[in-house]
Design a protein around this nucleic acid. Structure first.
Length: 957
RNA sequence: GCCCGAGUGGCGGAAUGGCAGACGCGACGGACUCAAAAUCCGUUGUCUGAAAGGGCGUGCGGGUUCGACUCCCGCCUCGGGCACCA
């Protein structure tokens, strides 16, 4: 433990002043103030209602809800990369408190889920024990950073009092359906009423009978088809290496698991699925109303992938085949159809002679996983089914093929192939000698680029033509597109024709898939669901929540070979026989039910945690409505509401940020929250990266033992290669906050992290550079405090005008920088001010109080501990946390004389000292009288003189 | 392949149409010290010059402008996202 703030330190050989600001003095100051803040409960933010309410303190203050993406409590604790965002939000929050805001800032732990569980499996320790000790360690590390968090609001997703509400929200979703007419989620009982009253009919696919003629069980099954979370037998991503299925979002482009990098296989399983696609339009459209980085919005737009076009039905011997196309205008050019090998009509369509070929192709397609399909050099393969379908506009019989380039998971799993207008279809048609008919005449340039003569005969074309072009060969008795040039006009013409003749209609399709919500693991929220004898799912009654995760001694998932795609998963909870069956009265007498043995995915807990921060101790509601409205409600009509500032890494662009938006919108529809979006403003911080070093055998060597010599990197006398990237245990380049606290102190560490670049930029970590911020604080300390006696040497003498002006320029700049999260430039400005102050102190021996006070205030958001210590020494009564941030005096932002650059032909030739209020005429006269200007002009008369008032003059010759 | 983002001293970066390199690190010189560390003072884009000064300079090539790191067009390199999405 370092010395406390009031105990002098003994420097080596007694040569270091006793109260020099260094790591050991900082340690004492920091601990002192961290204890003080805790005892004083300095950073508790009052609510408007409920147990955390303090209306008197709330009154008259604007609220500000700042949020960090909460961490996984991993076993290795924090490295210096983790706190970057936490420091930034802390600086911002502290700054905003000093501008009068009621700031809510807290941090919790995302403690369920695969990473924690995988770690537990590796260490062999129960995830709960492991998780709790990891959280304790992270809390300790974060406390030493001096974050101004409201400790009462720190939750963990694994707390029973938290996941009780995660289960409750799940049941809200389970008990809802999406009303396409009203475009919102509603309670499922309202759908039942609509069926009963006849306002709504089951679709013919669901039942041929009238609602009232259906049995209770049949009715129940139809209702279940509408629920926002439902059981579906569908193709899932099965990852035997993790013993669980995964969401699409958790599978990499290589067809492997995001976590652990195990192979993932497609197979059918009955799983809980969240109907996120019902919200596709709103998730897409509401992006426009959010203050998010454009790049993240774009990633979400691409992920949702809305395409507008048409559904078209083709008649065949096996019944209608429906396709989706974005280009219905090209229907006249559809010369064949392609079905996905998994399409349900393939068996019925295939002719006898093609049966064995089709079966063989389907078998080989099944064996390929997505990964292998990709490495396939993209050569198109396929097989003729022997069957034909009728092109509705041409009336022609066109062949039906199957090919694996058509995906079952998108559109209808079948396409109309227009080889002249689609590159993939063109390639396929060329490979299998299928007819290609031009339906648009490409423009002349297109032929020129391909160096061929313009011709509507596709035999000469090297590729398909995609784009606008005059339509040809596109007419029948009832409709003609020929001669038209506008694609949108052609599309709307053909769409109305299709609709009129009942061949199809305009339609929208999304890339977004519904969210697979079951995991065959242990460390997650149990589903609040039980099954009856008919295998129908029922909600566990609210008063029986939470459904507690049973304690297991063997919590490991079933061990499977990562390549074993055949074995069925056996969730760990299925082994807890005494927990598995339960006696309940769900309104029709006591019966025995079987519990759901899957658990929720890692994302469940993080889908709503920001709401629980608001009202963490509420036992009757997940959040009090008034409290939610205060912190997250819309600010004006049309405002989405939500967190005022959400800071985190870009890696959550489509997973967490899409899922939590979805849950939030359901809660909004059901009237549980007043905000339409969870996170109004999003900011992506960059990453702290690091250098790693490998020896000649490719082994990483400890980065902190590598020395640089003349541009070469040497470890134990041998040259090693440097690489740049993440910090990681295996890369042996981890630097921990603890090392920084010990070596420099938390304030220096905070300043360093904020000073190295703009918040959204990634930057390398360089421990060597940290000392710069240490020196800055040391000089500031020395300017205010006598290093030998620990006494303040601040005077009441007025500051000279120039120093006072420097102060106000600094205040002005720092204010703007803080407001815009530009902490790096704010720090530069503070250093400049301090450097100016140092010159004054060197000359006069003391710091004017009128400088010392605002300087300390401005430092306080960035390095709060040293600022508190100085504040105490300055003897100001108001706590620094709640003083008003200094405000610049506009009169002092203007100097009496300014320096004006003189350009000749845009090149700098001279600088003039001029009065600040110089007129253009005076400036011109002054410049023309300047010796350097006279020399540079060499007697020539300027053709033009450009003057930017009070800033610049440029002579054009 | 398609879509984003970024390229500035030895290093992190600043300047978003108007003095390129603020601020920090490092390096070099000096003070203090028996010495070192720490601290303090100074120099530091590059070429040229004894100096004053001058030439060049923001990935590359063009353009707009009195004036471009900044805006436009075309390339190169790096980073990220998506990837047979009909």
């Amino acid at each position: 433990m370092g010395s406390t703030a009031d105990t002098p330190q003994t420097g080596r050989g007694g040569s270091i002043p006793a109260y020099r600001y260094n790591a050991s003095l900082a340690a004492g100051i920091e601990q002192k103030w961290q204890d003080h803040w805790e005892q004083d409960r300095t950073f508790e933010a009052p609510n408007t209602a409920g147990p955390l309410a303090d209306p008197a303190v709330v009154a008259g203050r604007e609220k500000l809800f700042i949020l960090d993406m909460f961490p996984y409590p991993s076993g290795s604790g924090l490295h210096v990369g983790h706190p970057l965002g936490y420091i930034a939000t802390d600086v911002f929050g502290r700054f905003k408190r000093m501008t009068g805001k009621n700031v809510l800032h807290a941090i919790g732990y995302d403690s369920f889920g695969l990473p924690a569980e995988q770690h537990a499996i590796v260490t062999g320790i129960h995830p709960r024990i492991n998780t709790e000790s990891n959280i304790a360690n992270m809390r300790r590390q974060l406390r030493r950073l001096g974050l101004a968090h409201d400790q009462r609001r720190s939750i963990s997703t694994t707390d029973e009092s938290y996941y009780r509400w995660t289960q409750w929200i799940f049941l809200q979703i389970f008990n809802s359906w999406y009303d396409d007419r009203l475009k919102k989620a509603r309670n499922i009982t309202e759908l039942e009423k609509e069926f009963e009253s006849g306002m709504r009919q089951p679709t013919t696919a669901q039942s041929a009978k009238k609602w009232k003629d259906l049995s209770k069980l049949e009715q129940r099954k139809i209702l279940d088809d509408y629920r926002l979370v439902y059981l579906a037998n569908a193709p899932v991503n099965w990852c035997p290496g993790l013993g669980t299925i995964l969401a699409n979002e958790e599978v990499t482009a290589e067809g492997r698991s995001d976590i652990g990098n195990y192979p993932v296989f497609k197979r059918n399983m009955r799983q809980w699925t969240m109907r996120i696609t019902a919200y596709a339009d709103r998730l897409l459209d509401d992006l426009d109303r959010l203050d998010w980085p454009e790049s993240i919005k774009l990633m979400q737009r691409n992920w949702i992938g809305r395409s507008t076009g048409a559904r078209v039905r083709f008649a065949s011997a096996a019944g209608e085949i429906e396709v989706f196309t974005t280009r219905p205008d090209t229907l006249f050019g559809a010369t064949f159809m392609v079905l996905s090998p998994e399409h349900q009509l393939v068996d019925a369509l295939t002719t006898k002679s093609q049966q064995s070929a089709v079966e063989k192709y389907r078998e080989s397609a099944r064996k390929l996983n997505d990964n292998e399909r990709q490495n396939d050099d993209r050569k198109k393969t396929g097989v003729d089914t022997g069957a034909t379908a009728t092109n509705p506009v041409t009336g022609q019989q066109i062949p039906i093929w199957i090919a694996d380039y058509v995906l079952m998971g998108y559109g209808t799993g079948a396409i109309m192939a227009v080889p002249s207008g689609d590159e993939r279809d063109f390639e396929f048609a060329r490979a299998y000698k299928l007819p290609i008919v031009a339906i648009q005449m490409p423009p002349g340039e297109w032929f020129a680029i391909h160096d061929i003569a313009p011709s509507p005969d596709c035999a000469s074309w090297p590729s398909a033509y995609v784009g606008e072009g005059r339509y040809i060969n596109s007419s029948n008795k009832n409709i003609s597109l020929d001669g038209k040039r506008s694609m949108s006009q052609a599309i709307s013409l053909i769409n109305s024709w299709l609709e009129k003749n009942d061949f199809g209609e305009s339609a929208i399709t999304y890339k977004l898939r519904n969210w697979l919500f079951s995991r065959q693991r242990y460390w997650g929220e149990p589903f609040p669901i039980v099954y009856d004898q008919d295998d129908m799912p029922h909600a566990v009654p609210d008063k029986l929540l939470p459904v507690k995760l049973p304690e297991l001694t063997d919590f490991k998932p079933q061990a499977l070979d990562p390549n074993d795609e055949k074995t069925d998963p056996l969730p760990p909870l299925a082994r807890v026989t005494e927990w598995l069956s339960v006696e309940l009265d769900l309104g029709d007498g006591k019966k025995t039910y079987r519990r759901e043995v899957n658990v929720m995915p890692q994302w469940a807990g993080s889908c709503w945690y920001e709401l629980r921060y608001l009202d963490p101790t509420n036992t009757v509601q997940f959040v009090d409505a008034e409290v939610e409205r205060y912190w997250m409600g819309p600010k004006t009509a049309g405002h989405t509401g939500g967190v005022d500032l959400y800071v985190g890494g870009v890696e959550h662009a489509v997973l967490h940020l899409l899922y939590s938006r979805f849950w939030h919108k359901v809660l909004f529809d059901l009237g549980h929250v007043s905000s339409e979006e969870p996170f109004h403003k999003l900011f992506n911080q960059g990453y702290i990266q690091a250098f790693a070093y490998r020896d000649s055998r490719g082994q990483t060597v400890p980065a902190n033992e590598v020395v640089e010599q003349n541009g070469d990197f040497i470890f134990e006398g041998e040259s090693v290669a440097r690489e740049y990237g993440k910090m990681g245990k295996s890369l042996k380049n981890i630097v921990t906050p603890d090392e920084m606290y010990d070596e420099f102190g938390a304030d220096t560490f905070r300043l360093y992290e904020m000073s190295t670049g703009p918040l959204d930029a990634s930057r390398p970590w360089n421990t060597r550079d940290v000392v710069g911020m240490q020196r800055f604080l040391q000089r500031t300390w020395r300017n205010l405090v006598d290093e030998e006696t620990n006494k303040l040497h601040v005077s009441n003498d007025p500051a000279p005008l120039e120093l006072r002006r420097a102060l106000h320029r600094c205040i002005h700049g720092v204010h703007q920088d803080m407001e815009n999260l530009r902490f790096n430039t704010a720090i530069s400005k503070l250093i400049e001010l301090n450097n100016a102050l140092t010159m004054h102190v060197n000359a006069t021996g003391s710091t004017p109080r009128e400088i010392a006070v605002p300087l300390t205030q401005m430092l306080s958001p960035l390095c709060p501990h040293i600022a508190e210590e100085l504040w105490q020494k300055l003897g100001v009564e108001t706590p620094i946390t709640y003083t008003t941030f200094p405000v610049a005096d506009p009169k002092l932002l203007i100097s009496e004389t300014i320096e004006i650059p003189v350009q000749i032909n845009g090149k700098l030739r001279a600088r003039l000292a001029a009065p600040a209020d110089i007129s253009d005429d005076e400036l011109r006269a002054l410049a023309l009288a300047d010796a350097k200007v006279i020399a540079a002009l060499a007697g020539a008369t300027p053709a033009k003189i450009v003057i930017v008032p009070k800033r610049l003059i440029n002579f054009v010759l």
